[in-house]
Design a protein around this nucleic acid. Structure first.
Lengths: 83, 83
DNA sequence: CGTGTAAGGAATTCTGACACG
DNA sequence: CGTGTAAGGAATTCTGACACG
């Protein structure tokens, strides 16, 4: 399920993180929730998974900038094959 | 996914129904959303599916009482084998 | 850098009731 | 019976800022 259906409160429950942490990951461009017409965030289960991975990596010592770099190289690993 | 994560607003979007209709199905004991500590309803994707089936049946002429009966017989069809 | 918090406001949801039919 | 609606309140979420370090 990739549909963005969860409010931030539900994501907090599922991940055990605070709203502050989850919004910060978004500020650092690590996650991209949708918005309702009123401006409320909506997350998917995929987002929840990513958030947990981010938190895991940060506990291992990575900072948000490094995690963004990791995402880039992850994407690159998939494309060079065709070059 | 059976986890109850969606607010009623999201369910409205997914089903095209109104909050009034969805709450009424609950009043008639056809769906059973969870509640947050604050009292807000939380629905699962399974609930959404059931809601759509209910609406479908009602457009075919069934009323909520009959739909409740249908659910009973549906459950009964699965158990008599062991009697 | 990553997170906590108090502040004020806005979006969302809740219940019980009246209405129509 | 099934649904619309206005009413008032409560829960939820939002942003921008200050703080610590």
């Amino acid at each position: 399920m990739e549909s963005k259906v969860m409010s931030i409160g539900v994501v907090c429950e599922l991940t055990g993180l605070t709203e502050r942490q989850i919004r910060y990951y978004e500020e650092r461009k690590l996650i991209f929730p949708e918005r309702t017409k009123g401006g409320n965030r909506r997350y998917s289960f995929e987002d929840v998974k990513i958030i947990q991975e981010i938190h895991q990596k940060m506990q291992e010592g990575f900072n948000t900038f490094e995690l963004k770099e990791l995402n880039k190289t992850k994407k690159q690993r998939c494309t060079p094959i065709f070059r």
